[in-house]
Amino acid sequence: MQLSVENLRVSYGRIKALHGIDFHLDKGEIVCIIGANGAGKSTTLRAISRMVPVEPGSRMTYMGQDLLKHPADRVVSRLGISHVPEGRRLFGNLTVLENLQLATFARKDRENIPADIDRVFAIFPRLQERVSQKSGTLSGGEQQMLAIGRAFMSGRKIMLLDEPSMGLAPLLMLSVFKALREINQREGTTILLVEQNARLALQFSSRGYVLENGSLVLQGNSAELLANPDVKKAYLGG
């Protein structure tokens, strides 16, 4: 077990967002969390990357060591868990190259950075064409590629992706997911994906969890979930 989450509880003020969820990730697998708007999917990812405080009693371990003792920046730089946030959140005032470079801020192996940037460009050739363009001028698809490229540069033991398909045309969606699979296979990166597009996420992943109102209500391998009548009815449009 690479990442283990036990009894994860998060509240925003009085509103409870997660009521103690348990799940785990094994090294190299692709796992998805599906659920409706407001079910707590983004909160789950933000809790792992330490962007939101967790309630006492929550436990998270990475390779057996306590994840909660690391602040957000060290979850990335020490543990190698990167997070592609909802809405991409690129630094629009920085160029494509600067966005990639910023993600290497705390890396100690600085000699490997140029080669890694080349690998990002090999996966996403479109980014190389726009290398010195301000990232605010990129199209939606290019922005998603850059957001993934940035995560690749900062840490790639585990990649957390928040709605990578959002706002993308179907063809672009497919190419983004293809690139993710490529990263997963070549680098052994574990991928945890949260998606509203449940069908796409389940087709792409090997295991899945269903999150409803802050609780995990169902889990299993993705093929089973795709065939599950309840999942079909609630998330796959019958």
Binding site: S49, R50, M51, P71, A72, D73, R74, V76, S77, S82, H83, P85, R89, F91, G92, N93, L94, E98, Q101, L102, A103, T104, F105, A106, R107, R150, S154, G155
Partner: peptide, 24 residues
């Protein structure tokens, strides 16, 4: 410099800067 770059990034979007591994 990369420190200057981190400052520019923080000026644009303070919240996600830690996700880049930058100690804010």
């Amino acid at each position: 410099t990369r420190y200057g770059m981190a400052m520019r990034a923080m000026a644009f979007d303070f919240v996600v800067v830690p996700l880049m591994g930058v100690p804010v």
